[in-house]
């Protein structure tokens, strides 16, 4: 099971809490999947904060607050500071968005914010791209986990750059790596885990399914299967067929 900043998590599935049709369906999805971590955010208080907090505290998952929607270093750092107090955790999923249409991270601002927050005692989970140099800089900044995107947030396109993510896994064999965003189907989640990623973080794929609890369960099974496959050392693919049934001993029946 994944270990983030010295804490072992019970499941390699990390699940968001947004966009569910109702709070009870959110709770059903968490019961069905038993994810190890639940992501949450901070927004202007309009009366629902306490109720939501009571709900997520009872989900049985560790809380990972995010800085979703922040576009500058200053915004992200202030949001992280508020999250640390509000949620009582030094963990922060650091998002610094650079582009409105793709929600692609502003990796330059991300590195700067990660440096400031790590120096201030935060344990940063950076939402990043699979760029090797950017990821190396994030590790230099103090991050001990990396969360590259599979595809743009909410797109459900799966693993857009399998080569890049495999390359990242190979370059940083000892760093916990999470594919965050873009997962649409259990097969995408399984693919990430088969590639040796330590966990998968997803939200829309479950919340926007017709039956979120059933999809949550499917994702949990896929993550478990993908991890088991990775540890089982899969065979290499080959271009030519190779008969699996023995050739020797076949009857001559012409």
């Amino acid at each position: 099971m994944p270990v983030f900043y010295g804490t072992e998590i019970d499941s390699a599935l990390m699940l968001g809490t947004a966009q569910y049709p109702s709070p009870s369906i959110l709770a059903d999805a968490f019961r069905a999947a038993r994810p190890g971590i639940a992501t949450v955010s901070l927004r202007r208080e309009a009366g629902g904060g306490q109720g939501f907090w009571d709900l997520v505290s009872g989900l049985g998952a560790r809380i990972l607050p995010n800085t979703a929607g922040c576009h500058t270093v200053k915004e992200a750092v202030t949001t992280a500071q508020m999250a640390r107090e509000l949620f009582g955790t030094s963990w922060i999923k650091l998002e610094v968005i650079g582009h409105a249409d793709t929600l692609q991270p502003d990796v330059v601002a991300l590195i700067e914010a990660a440096t400031i927050l790590s120096a201030d005692g935060f344990e940063v989970f950076p939402y990043c791209t699979e760029d090797l140099t950017v990821c190396a800089r994030l590790l230099d900044a103090g991050c001990q986990v990396l969360m590259p995107w599979g595809a743009p947030i909410g797109s459900g396109r799966g693993i857009n750059n399998a080569y890049g993510l495999r390359s990242l896994r190979a370059h940083f064999p000892d760093v916990p790596l999470v594919v965050d965003a873009g997962i649409g189907l259990p097969s995408h989640a399984a693919q990430a885990m088969e590639m040796g990623f330590d966990a998968v973080l997803l939200n829309s794929a479950v919340a926007r399914a017709g039956d979120p609890a059933a999809m949550a369960r499917a994702m949990a099974l896929a993550v478990e299967a993908g991890r088991a496959a990775f540890t089982a050392d899969p065979m290499d693919a080959r271009d030519m067929a190779a008969p699996s049934t023995p050739v020797i001993g076949k009857a001559f029946l012409e």
């Binding site: 955010s41 208080e45 107090e85």
Partner: peptide, 27 residues
């Protein structure tokens, strides 16, 4: 950021922009 213990000592003055945030759904 204004930490909770600092709130009694943090003045509110004309034109201030105050944010009061709460736990909310997130991905």
């Amino acid at each position: 950021f204004v930490p909770a213990p600092m709130r009694p000592d943090t003045p509110i003055t004309e034109g201030d922009r105050i944010e009061v945030l709460a736990p909310m759904q997130g991905g």
